[in-house]
Write a protein that binds this DNA or RNA. Sequence first.
DNA 1: AGCGTGACGTATA
DNA 2: TTATACGCCACGC
Length: 111
Amino acid sequence: MSDFFDRVHEVCRQIPAGRVSSYGAIAKFLGAARSARMVGYAMNASIGKEGVPAHRVVNRLGMLSGKHYFGGSTLMQELLENEGVPVANDQVQNFETYFWNPADHLDPEKY
DNA sequence: AGCGTGACGTATA
DNA sequence: TTATACGCCACGC
């Protein structure tokens, strides 16, 4: 348990396949609503670690902001599509439909 | 101990 | 409506 990073990693790990979440939602869930940037920052450190599907985390607009950091290719988009999440123009389609709110499925007291 | 940085988000022009 | 500016807060140097 380093810090925020590990907490973010844990939450991301809880995101089911075929669903996506947002940085702000995770940040808010962790109690640091204004640290959405930190969430993304933590994800960057999570890349390469199994169990931390960073590709399931996008910004509030459902935009694949960090796909550039994901190997520099369309890997992120392909991963999402492979899980059943339609992506077009680096943007998740029907984002609200696939959005997965951690606060709605996880126990805040546990984190 | 301090400064710069950043996969965001909200406010303002 | 789109574009630009600012704030945030933890991490690395």
